[in-house]
Every structure is written in structure tokens, then in C-alpha cells.
Computed example of a mutant assay.
Amino acid sequence: MTNIITLNDSIAFGGNYPFVLIAGPCVIEDEALIMETAGQLKEITSRLGIPFIFKASYDKANRSSIHSFRGPGLDEGLEILAKVKEKFEVSVTSDIHEPNQAAKAAEVLDILQIPAFLCRQTDLLVAAAATGKIVNVKKGQFLAPWDMKNVVTKLKESGNEQILLTERGSTFGYNNLVVDMRSLISMNELGTPIVFDATHSVQIPGGNGTTTGGKREFVPYLSRAAAAVGISAIFMEVHPNPDEALSDGPNMVKLEKLEEVLKPIQEIDRLIKNL
């Protein structure tokens, strides 16, 4: 049986609760862009009645090139996310990369996200669990879905059962990912609500040499398929102008297109869950 993870009065994961949208630009490029995007995302999701959590990374520590933009860093990034949280009255999440970031990040973040490349890092998982916050772990591209049982066990034995697992595609040869929809079911059988990462799943890792490519045109189709499985949340990176974004532009959804992407997903979610 899947655990029901409750964030607040309006957001819960698992069971027949409506899907939650976790969305925002890949990285915090500057405060103005973040505030503009968060405001529009709040308007869109409020209009559609979709529970919403804002996400943007304060540090992209795993960029392909040492010269790539990484973000403002922990302190400034958390300040900006705190402003988003206060102004728009939304919950916020971001990645943590090192154990010593967990406690400070938890002062602002409602959910701590563990990057896919770091999903087996025991010290990072233990530190995240110790905060008492919901921990969302992205399945490594290199792992089978049932291998996430060990990740779940590490978190539970560290005293935290508020766990989300995210599917973000599996390595399929060189510079390519594929999504096996059976993975969503297999991970859900571990008793954790499942998030589908629609935009990272269409990445072409390292496909542009010093940057990652992507095929954002497939995001709507994979998202609908995931909704048909009955997932608890969908993660999408969204940007006003993805082609000019400083990170992950090729796989991000254009902000002005988001509402038309979300409507069919919402219809499928309601049908599957009898909402």
C-alpha cells in the first residue's frame, strides 16, 4: 500500500489525491526571472485547480562543462526561494548536493530533492532524512526501479518515512534516455508516491558536447502516459524563453505553452482516480 504523504492542507501525495505539479526554471538565473515565472505558474495552476510546488536549483553542481552557469549558490538561492514562498504563498523545493547543505536548506525548502546522480549517497540521504522534511529522491539513470528499495530503506532507517521517488528516465545507449512506464508501477510497489520528471526524461545527456540536449516536444506525450499510470506528481522545468535559458533549455517547456500541456494531463488524472 502506498503511503499518503501530506505536505499541507492543499497538497498531498499518494492514493487518489490529484496530481501535484512541481515546476519552475532549471536554475535560478536571477531574482527577477524567478519571481516572474513563479507568479505566472501560480496563476496558471490556480486557474486550473492544480496543486503547485515551485522548484528551481540554487546550484547545478553536475553541469557538463566547468564553464557552464551553475546558479547563485546556497545562501543567495535560498533567499530568493524564501521570497517566492512568502510572496506567492507556495511551497518550494530544490536540490541538495552535500550533507552539510541539508539543515540550512530545510529552513526554507518544504521538500528536499536528491539528484539522480547522488541517489545512493548514504551520508546525503541520512542528512536529508534528519531534517524531518519530505525527501524526494530521483532514481539514478543507471538503476533499475526495484534497486530504489535500498534508497527507501536508508531513509526509513534514518528515521524518515516521508519519501517520494522520481522517475527521470534510464540510460539507453550513449547520449540517450528512455522511460519504461513499468518503472512507475515497480517503484510505487515500494510504498512511496511516485513523481514523473517529464522534462529530464527527454534529455539527451551530453548530446551537445559541453551541454545537454533535449527534445521538449515529447514532454506532453510522456506526461499523459505517466498520468494514465496514476502517478502522484509531475515535475516539469518551465521557462519563459527556454532557447535562451542558462541550463537545460532544450528540454524545458515554454511557459506560454504550459496550460495547454497541463489540461489533458489533468483530464487523464481525473479519469484514472475517479476525481
Rank of each mutant, 00 (worst) to 15 (best):
residue 153 T to E: 14
residue 172 F to N: 03
residue 172 F to W: 10
residue 93 T to S: 12
residue 140 G to H: 05
residue 158 S to V: 01
residue 128 A to S: 10
residue 106 A to I: 05
residue 121 Q to F: 08
residue 179 V to K: 00
residue 113 Q to P: 08
residue 154 K to L: 02
residue 125 L to W: 03
residue 97 H to R: 11
residue 103 A to L: 15
residue 92 V to R: 02
residue 103 A to T: 14
residue 142 F to G: 09
residue 176 N to E: 12
residue 127 A to K: 01
residue 157 E to W: 12
residue 178 V to P: 02
residue 143 L to I: 11
residue 90 V to H: 02
residue 103 A to D: 14
residue 130 A to R: 15
residue 114 I to A: 04
residue 107 E to M: 11
residue 174 Y to T: 15
residue 111 I to E: 02
residue 125 L to K: 03
residue 159 G to Q: 07
residue 104 K to N: 10
residue 87 K to A: 14
residue 137 V to Q: 08
residue 179 V to T: 07
residue 99 P to A: 05
residue 93 T to Q: 04
residue 174 Y to I: 15
residue 136 N to A: 09
residue 92 V to C: 06
residue 94 S to M: 02
residue 163 I to H: 10
residue 129 A to N: 06
residue 150 N to L: 11
residue 114 I to T: 02
residue 110 D to M: 10
residue 88 F to T: 05
residue 95 D to E: 08
residue 158 S to F: 06
residue 89 E to V: 15
residue 142 F to C: 06
residue 136 N to M: 06
residue 116 A to I: 05
residue 134 I to V: 14
residue 125 L to Y: 05
residue 116 A to D: 10
residue 131 T to N: 01
residue 163 I to D: 09
residue 84 V to I: 10
residue 157 E to K: 14
residue 104 K to Y: 12
residue 136 N to R: 03
residue 110 D to C: 10
residue 125 L to T: 00
residue 172 F to L: 12
residue 98 E to R: 15
residue 177 L to P: 06
residue 154 K to V: 10
residue 139 K to L: 03
residue 154 K to S: 08
residue 93 T to P: 02
residue 101 Q to W: 05
residue 92 V to P: 03
residue 156 K to I: 06
residue 114 I to C: 03
residue 116 A to P: 11
residue 151 V to A: 13
residue 151 V to E: 14
residue 112 L to K: 02
residue 133 K to Q: 04
residue 167 E to I: 01
residue 141 Q to Y: 04
residue 110 D to W: 10
residue 155 L to C: 04
residue 121 Q to I: 05
residue 104 K to E: 13
residue 150 N to P: 08
residue 131 T to E: 00
residue 143 L to R: 14
residue 114 I to D: 01
residue 97 H to L: 13
residue 134 I to P: 05
residue 178 V to N: 02
residue 121 Q to K: 08
residue 83 K to A: 11
residue 169 G to Y: 03
residue 124 L to P: 03
residue 88 F to R: 05
residue 114 I to E: 01
residue 140 G to W: 00
residue 97 H to Q: 11
residue 108 V to E: 04
residue 128 A to C: 04
residue 150 N to Y: 15
residue 89 E to A: 15
